[in-house]
Design a binder for these strands. Sequence first.
DNA 1: CGCTCTCTTGAACAGAATCAAGAACGGTGG
DNA 2: CCACCGTTCTTGATTCTGTTCAAGAGAGCG
Lengths: 254, 254
Amino acid sequence: MQVTIDVTRHTDASCASRDLAVRCTNCNLRELCLPQGMAQDEVQKINGLVTTRRRVKKGESLQHAGEPFKSLYAVRSGSFKTCIATEDGRDQVTGFKMSGEIIGLDGIGTNSHIIDVIALEDSEVCAIPFSRLEEVSREIAGLQKQFHRIMSREIVGEQGVMVLLGSMRAEERVATFLVNLSRRFRARGYSATEFHLRMTREEIGSYLGLKLETVSRVMSRFHDVGLIKINQKHVLILNPEGLQEAASPSTAGH
Amino acid sequence: MQVTIDVTRHTDASCASRDLAVRCTNCNLRELCLPQGMAQDEVQKINGLVTTRRRVKKGESLQHAGEPFKSLYAVRSGSFKTCIATEDGRDQVTGFKMSGEIIGLDGIGTNSHIIDVIALEDSEVCAIPFSRLEEVSREIAGLQKQFHRIMSREIVGEQGVMVLLGSMRAEERVATFLVNLSRRFRARGYSATEFHLRMTREEIGSYLGLKLETVSRVMSRFHDVGLIKINQKHVLILNPEGLQEAASPSTAGH
DNA sequence: CGCTCTCTTGAACAGAATCAAGAACGGTGG
DNA sequence: CCACCGTTCTTGATTCTGTTCAAGAGAGCG
């Protein structure tokens, strides 16, 4: 087959992968990603870890449940949803991944993925071959430590979702979700009060254990009482404290 | 391959702690615990990892949220519940831990625990100092691999709970819970069809995102339709396939 | 421009929560 | 050994939150 178009973009990507841009040292995400908290000289040693970049178009999948596990992925740009499909046909969103976050930890235990990961927009990831990561982290204590931190935080984060799903009412869930997104956008240098939802109401609902109609209704209610301004996927948080309060009611004061 | 483990007589532990029994090599839980899947000679090298045993009486806590993180614990005998207390006073059970399972992974990320762990019965754990574990796992690839497996499985397990909480109805949740317990008892050499619940209805409910009355009602219903026989904390599974079917309905056939 | 997908909103319904009362159990002390 | 107490469990009646069903409005894409 002949490649006739898009040569520029293609070159961009290959350029990136043989050039300096692929190095963690120069990556503007290094404080959010794998190198976070590592010493300067340690980061240099892990430059070689990331061998390839991968582009994933909106709607395409980065990894499929059942595939053999080879690499972790660090989100370089864009965002993803992680889904789990149960034997009985249920399909649930278990998380949303933004830049700097690590994908694929589910595969380590059984050497095959159990989670589907799908791009919510055109995205790019850095592939981290896991066997290399294990090797290098045996040599660099800082990497080992950081990798353990990442896994532990994943565990803690999921416990937070369990609390959300197990004991929060619909309004609290949606408020918690928005507050969480807000924090993550801010951590990435974006506005904490104004952003664009990359996922549909249905995906939000699936993640929060609610139906899409309920998500929509709750957001409309927040809109009506002046907590937020929402128009389709565009969110403007008018009252961050109020939203935080809606997320965990009895948090005394604010 | 079938591994039969005799856990029925864990023997007395005081003898154990000053004697050879503290070594992983001789521990009858080694196929469920940290050494699982490691080579014989590797297991010998990690004998020194477990420095102390700790007894925890029923109702007492093994670790408190907020405490600095020093050690992981492997459950040697007995069982625990893990709870998370949110700022706004909510308190939720996030898991139950049985022999061979590892506790404390939540502390790695922040160097302090965020989870409370409370003994459901008089129990005993092996303390694994984490800094030592990191050191040794830099030397022994098998240990490193196994530790990563354990963390990954924790993540996967929690995703399973997220699906349960996010998309299952009450009956499915309770059935899933019982099937899960049944499997874990069997893996430990106990009966898969007859066992004693160590936790209260309220604790089960908290874990499953249900009220204790609902748990009780669902169990009574299962009893009435002949799936199980339940008398307070004593459970007898009469129809394992039926229970499995109740846990994930549309699982075609059985 | 038309089609589809997504979102909003309303009305009726269902499942689990809440409120309430009594029964069964387990531990304690007489 | 038995009576007593607090805790845990069961069961019923009622309430309420979120779901389901339904219809229409927007937005985005080819």
